[in-house]
Amino acid sequence: MNANKALWEKGDFTRIARSMRESGAALVSGLGITKGLRVLDLGCGDGTTAIPAAELGADVLGVDIASNLVAAGNARAEQLGLTNCRFQEGDACDLHALADDTFDLAISMFGAMFAPRPVDVAKALVRVTRPGGRIVMGNWIPNDPTLVAQLLKISASYSPPPPEGFISPMTWDVESNVIERFGEAGVPADRIDFARDTYFFNYPAPTSELVLEFKSFYGPTMNAFEAAAKSGRSADLQRELEALFSIHNESPSPDITSIPATFLRVTVTP
């Protein structure tokens, strides 16, 4: 099986996505979405940004490599009565099922950045977005002191080294890399804009319970715990993550979690 597919079908990312709903809706509300706009959400999960875009009247297609998340997205859309939103399985490196110039807006929040061939991702996004449309990516920032970058860094320190040729998803935050990748897709640098933004993980329980959700349902963290168990370091990993989540929690209530995480917002106009 495709290693990326196996990673994101592991566990149940919908459990993590519940803590991301509010920020997903807030981000989409600022994208100027109007009724009938054709929107692609690439690496969509179960619809954290696709669903609110459809609720604003866009015609939305969510594409994800994980079949369980596609099924969950379609179930959410059906439950909400959103006939203008559907989900299908696909690989961000090769959107062969999608025609050229199909979408007015392509979104990928913390999704396509994890695909293994970044230049192919850029080319695919540009190909399916109409000239004059927009591509908006949200990418986690390497070595950023906020939650997700540190979570991934800690998890990597307990995991085996990646295979030869592996390109870290965190390289999507380096502006020169982004410019180079979209440049290979034919987009000049002056049509690429960068901004720092903040995403919140809001969870109606203490931080220790959110750590448990990541441990039990988030593929990269699950892999880290499996590797840590083999070396007898599970307790160390648990302590590090509980400290990380606790330090970054901004909620005044001990029974509520609200953790900010900084990301790079990339806007491309093909």
Rank of each mutant, 00 (worst) to 15 (best):
I16D: 00
D59T: 06
L61M: 12
N84R: 14
A58N: 06
E55M: 15
A53C: 11
K35Y: 14
G36H: 04
R76W: 10
D64K: 09
A77R: 12
A72C: 05
N2S: 12
A26P: 03
A25K: 06
A17E: 15
Q88Y: 02
L7I: 07
K10I: 02
A50H: 04
G81W: 08
C85D: 05
N68P: 07
L37Y: 05
L82G: 14
M1L: 08
G62F: 12
A6Y: 07
K35F: 15
G36D: 15
D64I: 04
I65M: 13
D59H: 13
L82R: 14
G57Y: 11
M20V: 02
A26H: 08
V70A: 07
T14L: 00
D64Y: 15
L56F: 08
A72E: 03
T14D: 00
N2D: 14
A3C: 01
S19R: 01
L42W: 05
G47K: 07
G45H: 11
Q79C: 10
K5C: 10
D91C: 05
E78Q: 14
A58F: 07
N68Y: 01
L7M: 13
G24N: 02
R18I: 00
S23K: 07
G57L: 09
G47M: 07
A26K: 05
G43E: 10
G30P: 08
D12E: 09
L40H: 08
V60D: 10
G24K: 03
L69E: 10
V28P: 01
F13R: 03
F87I: 04
A72M: 02
N74S: 05
A25W: 01
I16C: 06
N84G: 09
G47S: 09
G32Y: 14
T83F: 13
T14H: 01
W8C: 00
D59P: 00
G90I: 00
L7Q: 10
L31K: 09
C85R: 13
C44A: 15
G62Q: 11
E89W: 06
L42Y: 03
K10H: 09
E9V: 02
L31E: 14
A25I: 00
A26F: 06
I33N: 08
N4T: 09
N2K: 07
V60Q: 11
T34W: 13
R76P: 00
D59A: 09
G47R: 06
L27T: 10
C44K: 04
G62R: 07
A26R: 11
D91E: 08
A77W: 12
P52W: 14
Q79G: 09
V70Q: 04
G62P: 13
D46V: 01
T34M: 09
I33Q: 05
E78G: 15
V63E: 12
S19Q: 02
C93F: 13
L40P: 03
N68V: 05
D41T: 01
A53G: 12
S29C: 02
S23M: 06
M1C: 05
F87P: 09
A3H: 03
G11I: 00
